[in-house]
Design a protein around this nucleic acid. Structure first.
Lengths: 202, 202
DNA sequence: TAACAGTGGAACGGATCGTTCCGCTCTGCT
DNA sequence: AGCAGAGCGGAACGATCCGTTCCACTGTTA
């Protein structure tokens, strides 16, 4: 039975390789041309425009997928009974999936859908719950917005080899989490939530 | 005396405001057009091309200035008799001057001069000395390249308001430095120097 | 008042990039 | 066997952007 073979199969494969290529390319350079995505995916430009209405549509899809992954990580980690394990699993999961660099660097390059906004709110709520479970173990003055910054700093760790990038991020997430637990009160005015979400408005 | 008044004075002022504007603009977006620099400086494009042979020349100058600042911070901090104070002063100085984000994000956009290369080597040597003075106080497994990553992560902290950015960086440098001193051995293979200097080659 | 350093900004030419379009291929059906 | 059309590759197009040049103008200096 060749019901899903041939052309249809190739199309399904292209679906995936285009998305994977887009993730890679836009992770490297959020302003990369769309032709670079097609090239990395090993397809023509038409294959891309057959699936997405335009560049913005692709970017939005990519970003929304990242958001959903973020939510999935949070929901999964939430089930850990131990507060700190739940929190650490969540952070490491998000960092490892490289969700944050994609969402952050792509922010503002497209107009979000209503569903995306709702998911963003939900993602925030879930992360907040995880944060509040560990807040008593953190340095005095630590606030939820510090977690966003922690993720941002982790995303800044980047070397040419993706596998090495992941290894190094494990290393520095370790540093950041330890630094967030050990020490006196955190210095300076804490970041506010709107200070860190300005990307989305613009 | 009006010997340096009038046109000459305005020219001297422009020297400064162009450099300041360039720092601001390229800090915001390393690929900003040169016209944006002129606009922010409040001058015409000619005023810019009178001073610099082209965009690359301006970028190189900016980057070299940053490098010199880095060296100055290191030399100044080196004089502290207390090892940790020397190191911490150096790190905070470099982060506060926003040297790292400029040099890193501009790397690869111009061909460096021979003098620049020499300064880069010297900067590295100075920083290495400061690092070695504190290495025994750091978590096991900490290497010099970790400092580069620390600076990189600090540079990733950024909000629209520059003053708030500086305050927040103080906060997170605190986290990073504490995290680098407290805890078990650092996990994973440490970064190598060439892993972190690939930007310059390309 | 003549010469000119310094300047503003329009104009030019090249490059880039998103999108469209056309011709081809291969498939599934008759 | 032959046909209709889905899916595709990539050239071509048009718009935009950007670095650089150029020229007219202005205030200063000698």
């Amino acid at each position: 039975m060749t019901s899903t073979a041939g052309r249809a199969r190739q199309a399904a494969r292209n679906d995936e390789s285009i998305l994977a290529a887009a993730r890679e390319v836009f992770l490297e350079d959020s302003r990369a041309p769309i032709a670079a995505v097609a090239e990395r995916a090993g397809v023509g430009i038409s294959a891309l425009y057959r699936r997405y209405a335009g560049k913005e549509d692709l970017l939005r899809t990519l970003c929304h997928d990242g958001l959903r992954l973020f939510i999935a990580e949070a929901e999964s980690a939430q089930r850990h009974p131990d507060d700190w394990t739940a929190f650490e699993t969540f952070i490491r999961g998000v960092v490892d999936a490289d969700v944050h660099s994609l969402t952050v660097h792509l922010a503002g390059t497209f107009t979000p859908t209503e569903e995306m906004r709702a998911d963003a709110v939900r993602a925030n709520e879930l992360a907040l719950v995880l944060f509040e479970r560990v807040q008593p173990m953190l340095r005095r003055g630590a606030v939820f917005a510090d977690i966003t910054m922690l993720l941002e700093m982790s995303a800044a760790v980047r070397v040419p080899d993706p596998e090495r990038t992941r290894q190094l991020r494990v290393r520095y997430v370790d540093v950041l989490l330890d630094g967030l637990r050990t020490g006196a009160e955190l210095p300076g005015p804490a970041p506010t939530v709107q200070e860190l979400s300005w990307r989305w408005s613009q």
